[in-house]
Amino acid sequence: MSNKLLIFLFLIVLLFLHQDFWFKDDPSLVFGFLPVTLAYHMVFTVVAAIGWLMVVKFAWPKGLDEEGGDS
């Protein structure tokens, strides 16, 4: 599977996960103070950052510095 396809799939999955159909009407509190939908989106944010870490590590486009004329 190409890097471009992987990145595309990664964005589509995140887009779906963002919609949060699961906790949108659940008033329970995680750790006694954090509304569950808020906790979910915090985890989502961390997952997004980890996803970008993966992109940076394994799918970074090659030759951009050369293309930009960098030495």
Binding site: I7, L11, L14, L15, H18, D20, T37, L38, Y40, H41, M42, F44, T45, A48, A49, W52, V55, P61, L64, E67, G68
Partner: peptide, 26 residues
């Protein structure tokens, strides 16, 4: 938070990658 912040967390980085990086090179 989901509407404004985590949406930006997703879309901003995607824009920097897909647009910002390419425009930097050009």
């Amino acid at each position: 938070y989901g509407k404004l912040a985590s949406a930006s967390a997703l879309v901003h980085s995607a824009s920097f990658f897909l647009i910002g990086l390419r425009l930097w090179a050009l």
